[in-house]
């Protein structure tokens, strides 16, 4: 019936000129729009995304090139001239901008140089956790059965360990606590939440009809996993990882504060907060500036995570 084919095609053409599908949009309906593209479009229209991104970008540059932001040496203490000197809030970017600490070191310089450790721990732990937790969660969710039982039980056991307490115990057994040691310790205890999120979203995605359709076509496991399941299960993991990143940074600071995280000579906000807290009555500035920086960084990551979650929220699709 060649005629029928023609009418059908015409029908669609007419329909499309006048009655575009309700899911499509007015202006951009003629262009292909992927879901990631839609999410990016959504993100671009959120001030929260821009504020947090600019903040984080600045922090990244500071972490990479601290020398660009201050000329002072963060380890150079001058107790005779600078012991707990008050901040000079008018002296922008000068060593005395935030004042000096109890060892006569420039707090501004220490805040700037401390960024690197925090960002490295945050990004490092998140990368490790996403890799390990994501992989285990994906395997557990996709293959199910005994593999799922084992992974889930192990996850439960790790989940039962109090995060900070566990990290303290682990780190306590190391005498030389470098950045990578802290990263490994935190990742060792922190992979469970990502694993659970990934497992849940993989289970949801693998039950979708498009996965059944791919199986019916004869698609192999790797095609189903990497082309159909993973792209549709990734969004919640990205959101959880972004928000958790802030948490890992504060965990590092907490551990360093307790003397179980990074140790001297590494410069860390946590160590400075610990030292600053000893003179809090008369010289709150020694505590305030590193603590403020820490809060700002954590806040920026959580805000970014929120913006990403809103943009990726599948309920809006």
């Amino acid at each position: 019936m060649p005629d029928a084919t023609k009418t059908e095609t015409e029908t669609e053409a007419v329909a499309d000129a006048t009655a575009a599908p309700s899911a499509a949009t007015g202006k951009t309906q003629d262009k292909p729009r992927s879901l990631w593209g839609d999410a990016w479009f959504d993100l671009r229209h959120r001030p929260m995304f821009w504020i947090s991104s600019i903040l984080l970008l600045t922090l990244l540059i500071v972490a990479a090139f601290p020398g660009l932001f201050t000329s002072a040496d963060p380890s150079d203490g001058d107790l005779t001239n600078h012991f707990l000197t008050k901040p000079e809030l008018g002296h922008f970017f000068q060593p005395d901008w935030f004042g000096y600490d109890g060892q006569g070191r420039s707090i501004y310089a220490r805040v700037i140089y401390g960024t690197r450790a925090s960002i490295m721990v945050g990004v490092g732990v998140t990368a490790a956790v996403t890799l390990v937790g994501g992989l285990l969660g994906m395997l557990a969710g996709y293959f199910g059965g005994w593999l799922d039982s084992i992974i889930s039980r192990v996850t439960d056991i790790f989940f039962g360990i109090p995060f900070l307490l566990g990290a303290m115990v682990v780190l306590n057994s190391f005498t030389d606590r470098k950045v990578y040691v802290v990263i490994l310790a935190l990742a060792f205890l922190g992979w469970t939440s990502i694993c659970r999120v990934m497992r849940a979203s993989v289970i949801t995605a693998k039950q979708a009809d498009y996965v059944t359709a791919a199986r019916a076509l004869g698609a192999g496991t790797s095609r189903i996993l990497f082309r159909h399941v993973l792209p549709n299960a990734l969004a919640p993991t990205i959101v959880v990882a972004t928000i958790a990143l802030g948490g890992y940074i504060s965990a590092e600071a907490t551990l360093s504060f307790l003397g179980l995280g990074l140790g001297e000579p590494t410069i860390s906000w946590g160590i400075d907060i610990a030292q600053g807290s000893q003179a809090i009555r008369d010289n709150p500035h020694a505590l305030l500036f590193p603590a403020g920086m820490l809060s700002l960084t954590v806040f920026a990551f959580i805000m970014l995570g929120d913006a990403v979650r809103d943009a990726l929220d599948p309920k809006l699709r």
């Binding site: 084919t5 059908e8 095609t9 669609e12 499309d16 599908p21 729009r33 699709r317």
Partner: peptide, 18 residues
Amino acid sequence: DVVGLNPEYINRYPHQFS
């Protein structure tokens, strides 16, 4: 074309259709 859709839609995503 056989199923009555415009062949130019090849690069669109499913959510752009009814």
